[in-house]
Amino acid sequence: MLEVRALKKEFQALSGQPVVAVEDFSFRVEAGQFVSIVGPSGCGKSTLLQCIAGLSPPTAGRVLLHGRAVTGPPEGLILLFQEYNKSLMAWRTVFKNVRFVLENPANMKRSEIDAETQRFIELAGLKGFESHYPWELSGGMQQRVAIARALARRPEVLLMDEPFGSLDALTRMELEDTLLRLWESLHATILFVTHDIEEAVYLSDRVCVLSGRPSRLLEEIAVKLERPRNQLSTREDPGFIQTRHRIFKLISKELAVP
């Protein structure tokens, strides 16, 4: 469904030197999958997502969604950012932040838009916070608003750029489980970027391990852990520990400083 072919992204550093962020990156995501991308920080994961989301043109290679080349932000694909405090509209209430994405292709009646908005607010665990402004909420709740907003648009593919990177450990676990629940009930397809190996293994069907800059795909690792996943039993499962071990070894080689 989503396919990346030999993608390369190069940009000019401030010094004028060309920097290769991503090199010869190819992979596929099938409908309904939960795929994570992990790699050392600063390796170009976010750049890769920006290219896939059509927000930044690749230097070489192609991104295909349903076989059509992505040249700008495509229909059916939404990118969710880590910085919820910047991506949410501070001047709109929680309800209106979510409603906003349904107003744009105005093919629904007002009452339908409101009902759909309410549905996603409740799915994301935000019932009772409809009339709050985002900045009145905690970080975790704000990211829930961003998730509700992204999913309300019913994207075929949801790209997430380290969405839980700035949250504390407990909030992060809560949101991981909310995300999995939503992913399953909405039959969404998610491409999730993180630098947290355990998070990647816990959430995903498959983990793509990236090298340091320039980012290449080192290995794709299938995660064969049963669903629904559980913060305790899944993380204590020998399969989980082995997968984490393998990914850690791959990445730590990349981190090795002479």
Binding site: Q50, E75, L79, E83
Partner: peptide, 18 residues
């Protein structure tokens, strides 16, 4: 205006008017 906000507008495919 923060680029993240403008990128959010882009990913939701707002037309220039919106």
């Amino acid at each position: 205006i923060d680029p993240v906000l403008m990128n959010t507008a882009a990913t939701f495919r707002l037309n220039p008017w919106e």
